[in-house]
Structures are given as structure tokens and as C-alpha cells.
Design a binder for these strands. Structure first.
Lengths: 219, 219
DNA sequence: TCAAGAATAGAACGACCGTGCTTTTATGGC
DNA sequence: GCCATAAAAGCACGGTCGTTCTATTCTTGA
């Protein structure tokens, strides 16, 4: 790998971290350059525009997603184990140390309205692929007899992904509201919810989904 | 209402629309002033800092949320009807015409990492209140015998909200990927998903949740 | 080893950001 | 209808944004 490619990929690593926190739009060339130990123009030379930088970040994230989530799971046994592996890998992905702000795709989807059209299109493509992968794994699980035949695989994939994304959002909401929050006075007997709680409850929800998806005679 | 209060609230209305699209952080004083037909400094005088503007936007959104979602639903009959009303009102809320970018809270939660601490704290407070309201309504439904006694109300509230937020994100992801997207070639037989589809599937998921929550003898 | 070319730095640009200060204009109670 | 006061505009500031152009330093293959 040539020197240029090397720094470019190092920059993208930093950029992913930054984007996961402040969003794709919030990644600033100046700040990114400083963090990466480059001058603004030195960094800029690698990407010839901000849009192309954003596309580069997204592409790098997609590559890592495939390597860390999709590929290992596809090596698992067909059927329920593979579906479970996909979800387990995603949960690990969502708290990867290289994305301190959580899953970069969730952030990007939330800010989709003001993304450059090309970036938005690529994001949609990637998410549809991911959804399709999930649905396909579920269909295979149906064929294997692990899940009910009359199950709607698309529906289940969508539910499971929604639960994951929703819990991810809510978990981060609480993670960043530590004991420093001004007044703990009000709100007397409030629903107990810590980030760890939320993760456990996501597990519970998915477990229930899986149980419901099993053939009747297996329940 | 004095003139100042009048324009202030008009500005906040515009600001909510803007924030739902570009996020709280993306709301710029200059752009907002232009949209509202004011000069930058004229608008700035109403809020003495950007942080206080953001807090004002959030507070106004919370007020509207209570008026449009919480209050009407609490007038519904105790039990399942009230829970259903809350969810129905939320779905209407999420596509209110005054929030062209979708639910402002979902956007805000996604960008929570880089919100001013005070704004973040208020957002957390509001979301916990909302979650609590939902859980409480579910508990009442249990007392009324509409839902199983051994149900975990917090768990169900979290699941339902996660599904709503997750579907909201994914629905918007597709809504903004109209027929203009460059290449429709690849990805041959892809899972059929339009925004309307997604909303219908959210309904299906919630219906299933409700059915599972009913006492066994009612199923 | 040395030159060709890649990689980076430096300085500058116009535009917009949030925020103060001063001045002008509109409002509303007497 | 006048006038104290509220509301809005005008203007200027230091900073940062993305981007361009030029100059310098480093890589690398013959």
C-alpha cells in the first residue's frame, strides 16, 4: 500500500469516529485534519470535495460492516444460528470502539434529509442490502424448519432491525445523561432504565420474536 | 399576546420545521431569520444565545407534543383504548405538516452527542416522561384486564416506542430515495418496501404486540 | 543516487457562523 | 396624540467553513 493510500485510510478511520458522534454533515475538514495530524489542504488533496469525503467515509463504513457483520455471520450454519449471528454481530458493531458515537448508519439515516443526493443514494442502497441480507437469512431459516413457513420474512427483518435501531437510539439517549444532570428531584417513581437495561431489554424483545417465529409444535 | 410574544412563537414554528429537517444543531440564525422575515439581529434579540434558541425550540415542541399527543389520548377510556390512542396520535404526530423532516425528537436523539448539555438534559427528561406515560397507560390496561397481569409494562413500552422510532427512521430513508436514484438496475428481486409499506408493517407489528399482550383466554 | 512525481504544507479567498453595539422604527398605556 | 418603551434593523467583529493555488518536502523506481 502506497503512502497516500495509507494516510487516506487512516484519515477515514478518524473520520468514521468523528461522523459517528457528530454525523456525516458535522465532520469538518479542519477538525478532521487536526485530529489526523495533517494540514487542512493536505487532507483536502486526498478527497477533492467534501461530498467525496463523505462518500469515502460511507464506503469505508460499508466495507467494515461487511467484514465485521455480514461475512462472519454467513459462515454460520444455515437457519436460526445464522440469523442470530447477524443480530449478535450487529450489536457488537453498534458499540465498536472505532464508532464512539454509536452506529454511523443510524446517525446518517437520521440526518438523511440534508445529505448530498449521492451520499443519500448510497446509504439507501446499503441499508436495503442489509435488510435484504437479514430477510434472506430468515427465509433460509424457514426452509430449514427453524421458523414457521407462514412467517413474513420481510416483516420480521423489518421488526428486528427497527427494534435494534430504536433501542440503539434510546440507549444512547440515556448513556449521555449521566449523574451530572441538574435536578434528579422531580419524577418520583420513574421506570428504571439504564443503557445496560436497555440492551438487556432488546435481547428480551428479540428472544420473544424468535420464540413467536418458531413452528407451533416446537413451542 | 403582545407583539414580541407573537413573533417569537412564529419564529419557533419556523424553527421546528427547520429543526425537523436539519436537526437542532443545523438550525442557523441567519437562515431562520430570513425564513421568518426578520433580520438576524432582530431575531437574535428574542433569544439571547443560540443555546437558548435551541431550548426554546425544544420547549415549544414539547408543548405541542403534550397538546397533540398526550392530552387527547388521556381523554380516551382507560386501558387498551388509551394505549392505542397514544400510539395512533404519535403516528399522526410523526407526519405533522409542521415537521416536514419527521419527528423532531427522533432527529434530536440521533444528534444527542453534540447537543449543549442543557438541551440534552431537557430532551432526556422529555423522552423519559413520554416513556413513562406510555408504560403507565399499559399498566392501567393490565388493571383493566385488557393486557396480561404478568406483562412487563416497561418492556412493552420500550418495544413499542423502539418499533415506532425504528420504522420512522427507515420510512424516511426510503421516502427520500425517490425514482430519481441513479441506477435501479442492480439488486434484482429486492424486498418490496415503500414508505407506505413500512407504515403498514409498523401497524402489523404493533397489532401483534397487542395480541400477545392480551390474556390467554381472550386469544 | 537522482530525478520525476506524489504527498503535504502555506497562505489566501469569499461566505456564513454566532454575537455584541448602536440606531431606527413600531407599540401601547395615559 | 404623546412618549416611554419594546421590537426590529443595521453594522461590524472575530472565527470557521469549503475550496483554490502555489510552493515545498517526501517517496519511490530506474
Amino acid at each position: 500500500m502506497t503512502k497516500g493510500e495509507e494516510t487516506r485510510s487512516a484519515v477515514l478511520g478518524e473520520a468514521i469516529a468523528q461522523a459517528s458522534v457528530v454525523g456525516l454533515r458535522g465532520v469538518t475538514i479542519g477538525t478532521l485534519a487536526t485530529k489526523a495530524g495533517l494540514s487542512k489542504s493536505g487532507l483536502f488533496a486526498h478527497f477533492r470535495s467534501k461530498e467525496s469525503l463523505q462518500l469515502g467515509i460511507l464506503e469505508e463504513a460499508i466495507t467494515r460492516f461487511i467484514a465485521l457483520v455480514i461475512a462472519p455471520s454467513l459462515k454460520e450454519a444455515r437457519g436460526k444460528p445464522r440469523v442470530a449471528a447477524l443480530l449478535g454481530a450487529w450489536k457488537r458493531w453498534a458499540r465498536s470502539e472505532f464508532m464512539p458515537g454509536g452506529c454511523i448508519f443510524v446517525s446518517a439515516i437520521a440526518e438523511i434529509d440534508d445529505l448530498e443526493p449521492a451520499v443519500r443514494a448510497r446509504l439507501v442502497e446499503a441499508q436495503l442490502d442489509w435488510l435484504d441480507t437479514l430477510a434472506q437469512a430468515i427465509r433460509i431459516a424457514q426452509d430449514e424448519g427453524h421458523f414457521r413457513k407462514d412467517l413474513d420474512a420481510t416483516q420480521m427483518a423489518l421488526e428486528v432491525l427497527s427494534l435494534a435501531y430504536g433501542h440503539h437510539l434510546l440507549g444512547r439517549l440515556l448513556r449521555l445523561s449521566g449523574p451530572g444532570s441538574s435536578e434528579r428531584t422531580r419524577a418520583p417513581r420513574r421506570t428504571s432504565l439504564s443503557p445496560a437495561e436497555i440492551e438487556a431489554r432488546l435481547d428480551r424483545a428479540i428472544t420473544r420474536l424468535f420464540r413467536d417465529a418458531q413452528p407451533r409444535d416446537a413451542r
